[in-house]
Amino acid sequence: MMYTEKVIEHFRNPRNMGKLEGYSAVGKVGNIVCGDVMWLYIKVEEDAEGREVISDISWETFGCTAAIATSSMVSELAKGKTLPEAIAITNQDVASELGGLPPVKMHCSALAADALNEAIYEYLKGHGREIPPVLKRRHERLEAEMKKLEERYRAFLEEAGS
């Protein structure tokens, strides 16, 4: 398995990791492909021109080297972006910013892009706002996957008491 230097570098020094104090919304996603889980926290504030931007972002990830590197990368890409800009970030963007990922690891980058979308979905929903259909469709798929994963990790979640 060959990871690029960039992947290794982000894995070694992950940016924006941990839980965000005073976050506006959190996107919780899991991937049934291998069982990775990522929680992405965003803080949304208005900028000088009154646009909503992701002023701060952080994440917690249970996954492989690629999952950690893509979490780190998506947080860098989304930070400071307006919501429409952030929604437009794809897993391809994340992967290519990292200099590419092994084919078997592309689903890890999908998780990162999904987590960002989900956080924005939660934010819009929490503020009683209209939700773009792309986000909605994605949300439904993600919710179903997360249910399956919670099933899988139930024993663990109980064991670990979290």
């Binding site: 990830t61 249970f62 670990a160 979290s162």
Partner: peptide, 9 residues
């Protein structure tokens, strides 16, 4: 563990 969403006591 510090970067995992699953916390271990």
């Amino acid at each position: 563990r510090a970067i995992s969403p699953f916390k271990v006591e």
